[in-house]
Amino acid sequence: MSLTVVNGLPAHILFVHFVIVLVPLSALALIACAVWPGAARRLGLILPVLTLVTLATVPVSTPRAP
């Protein structure tokens, strides 16, 4: 398995879909924590980890110039 193909699909497309899902999910979780303090206690360490994963997938999914 190479880094450009995962199960026959281009890896770039999979990473783009990770970003499409994770960015709004992180934003909604952050808004929920800001509005409802109980959500901040429930999410605990999940929100910072989620945002770090989102941050890591953004540069991976951006196309590189040839």
Results as ranks from 00 to 15, higher is better:
residue 10 P to R: 05
residue 59 P to N: 07
residue 31 I to M: 10
residue 6 V to T: 03
residue 66 P to G: 13
residue 12 H to I: 15
residue 22 L to Q: 04
residue 31 I to R: 06
residue 39 A to D: 05
residue 22 L to S: 03
residue 7 N to A: 11
residue 6 V to F: 02
residue 59 P to Q: 03
residue 49 V to W: 10
residue 32 A to I: 10
residue 11 A to K: 00
residue 63 P to R: 03
residue 61 S to P: 06
residue 29 A to H: 05
residue 47 L to V: 08
residue 10 P to V: 11
residue 51 T to C: 15
residue 47 L to C: 05
residue 63 P to G: 04
residue 16 V to I: 14
residue 64 R to L: 15
residue 20 I to T: 12
residue 66 P to F: 14
residue 4 T to P: 06
residue 45 L to H: 11
residue 66 P to S: 13
residue 31 I to S: 09
residue 23 V to Q: 00
residue 21 V to G: 08
residue 35 V to N: 12
residue 32 A to E: 06
residue 64 R to K: 15
residue 32 A to Q: 05
residue 38 G to V: 10
residue 7 N to Q: 11
residue 46 I to L: 09
residue 16 V to K: 01
residue 17 H to R: 12
residue 3 L to N: 08
residue 51 T to W: 08
residue 38 G to C: 08
residue 21 V to Q: 04
residue 44 G to A: 07
residue 6 V to G: 00
residue 64 R to S: 15
residue 47 L to K: 04
residue 53 V to S: 01
residue 22 L to Y: 00
residue 4 T to R: 09
residue 25 L to A: 03
residue 58 V to H: 00
residue 45 L to F: 12
residue 46 I to E: 13
residue 66 P to W: 12
residue 25 L to D: 08
residue 33 C to P: 08
residue 26 S to N: 05
residue 31 I to K: 04
residue 28 L to H: 08
residue 12 H to Q: 14
residue 9 L to E: 13
residue 24 P to A: 01
residue 40 A to G: 12
residue 25 L to M: 12
residue 28 L to C: 14
residue 18 F to P: 00
residue 41 R to T: 14
residue 13 I to P: 07
residue 4 T to N: 10
residue 43 L to S: 07
residue 62 T to G: 10
residue 52 L to R: 02
residue 3 L to D: 07
residue 22 L to P: 02
residue 5 V to M: 15
residue 24 P to Y: 02
residue 33 C to W: 05
residue 28 L to V: 15
residue 29 A to Y: 04
residue 38 G to P: 06
residue 7 N to S: 10
residue 55 L to Y: 02
residue 4 T to F: 14
residue 58 V to N: 01
residue 18 F to W: 02
residue 53 V to D: 01
residue 42 R to S: 13
residue 40 A to D: 03
residue 31 I to C: 09
residue 17 H to L: 14
residue 50 L to A: 10
residue 53 V to N: 00
residue 13 I to T: 15
residue 26 S to A: 09
residue 51 T to Y: 09
residue 25 L to C: 08
residue 17 H to S: 14
residue 49 V to A: 12
residue 1 M to G: 13
residue 39 A to K: 01
residue 40 A to W: 02
residue 12 H to W: 12
residue 27 A to W: 04
residue 3 L to T: 11
